[in-house]
Amino acid sequence: MRVIANRDLCQGHARCEDLCHEVFATDAIEGKVVIVQADVPTALEDKARLAVRNCPEGALRVGRSGKGDDA
């Protein structure tokens, strides 16, 4: 599983970082999402998926690993 962030939509709620800091962090300037590891280890998939579903801006998406699905 892969996670994709749209930093134009991100407004820095940081819910993703709260829910799954292993995959999502935030920068020190704007407080927007930074993906720590785009290819999510199997053990973290549920946590990462929950973080994606809790983004109030719909700025996060789940894709398939290795598909280059960054558009």
Binding site: A14, A28, I29, G31
Partner: peptide, 12 residues
């Protein structure tokens, strides 16, 4: 917004 943002990030 840009001026204030760094002071209210999770890191801050």
């Amino acid at each position: 917004r840009r001026l204030l943002a760094p002071m209210f990030t999770p890191i801050a």
